[in-house]
Simulated assay, not measured.
Amino acid sequence: MKQYFTLIFLLSLASCNSIAKDTSQKISLKNYAEEAMKDSLIGASPIVVISKVSIKFYSKLDANHYVFSKLNRKGLVIIPKNSDVIEEILGAESKLNGVIVFMEAHELKPDFNKLRYVLNGKEIRKSVSDTINMKNIKSFVVIKKRNTNQCVAFLNTKY
């Protein structure tokens, strides 16, 4: 038992060290949003999904707050403005301005038989999603519609 504890401790220590060394992928929410706005992926006031039930308007967030100052770029996903289905989940403003999602907030276990797929802003059939080469996927997040079991997978191969 003691050996397992030591092994787990060493593995967690190693992963912490690798995280600490990887500062090249750190970015502030403000810079991340500005890049996406410059690329016309999102509008001036996207919705920011911080947790499964917490959404905020970017314009009302203090993007300079220390919590948002050193985020892992790989932990952020953009659902571009005018994406299919997003309005059903997060409302009209999400379709108009897009969404920034904190990946760590979404550890959903969807029913893959009922999952809907949106690729680069356009809804696709599951059969099409099965043919996508995983090496081409730059970001992926599953969002659950409140008070339902409906989930949508948003995949991006661009950006």
Rank of each mutant, 00 (worst) to 15 (best):
K95D: 05
D130Y: 08
T6M: 13
L13H: 01
Y66I: 12
A14W: 04
I132N: 06
I100R: 01
N82F: 07
H106G: 00
K38A: 15
K21C: 03
I100T: 04
A44I: 15
S83M: 02
R125W: 03
K135H: 08
K144T: 11
S59W: 01
H106L: 11
L115F: 07
F5A: 13
A63Q: 10
F57M: 04
I132Y: 07
M37L: 13
V152K: 04
S15M: 09
L13N: 08
L61H: 02
K38R: 12
K114E: 09
L41G: 04
G75N: 11
I86Y: 05
D22V: 00
K114G: 00
G43C: 02
G121D: 09
K74Y: 12
M134W: 00
P110F: 08
I79G: 02
K70Q: 14
V48D: 06
S127L: 13
V48N: 06
M1H: 14
L76M: 10
D84Y: 00
I132E: 09
S15H: 07
V85C: 05
A44L: 12
N64K: 10
A63S: 15
F9Q: 15
G43R: 05
V53Q: 10
S28L: 02
V101Q: 03
L7V: 00
K81Y: 05
I27A: 07
F102C: 02
K144Y: 07
S69A: 15
V118R: 05
L90K: 06
I8F: 09
I50E: 14
K56H: 07
V67N: 12
S127E: 15
S127W: 15
S18E: 10
A153Q: 10
A63Y: 06
K158D: 15
N149T: 10
C16V: 11
K135R: 12
V49T: 07
G121A: 01
L61Q: 04
E93V: 14
F5V: 11
H65P: 02
N133K: 15
N120E: 09
Y32E: 09
A153M: 09
V99W: 00
R73V: 01
A14I: 12
F102V: 01
L11M: 13
E34P: 00
K52V: 01
F57L: 14
F102T: 02
F57I: 05
Y66R: 13
N72R: 04
C151Y: 06
K138C: 03
F112V: 09
F102K: 08
M134N: 07
N31S: 12
V101E: 03
K60Y: 11
D111P: 05
S15Y: 09
V141T: 14
L76T: 03
E34R: 09
L7A: 13
R116A: 13
L119R: 04
N149K: 14
V53F: 02
E104Q: 12
V118S: 04
D130C: 07
Q25W: 00
V152R: 00
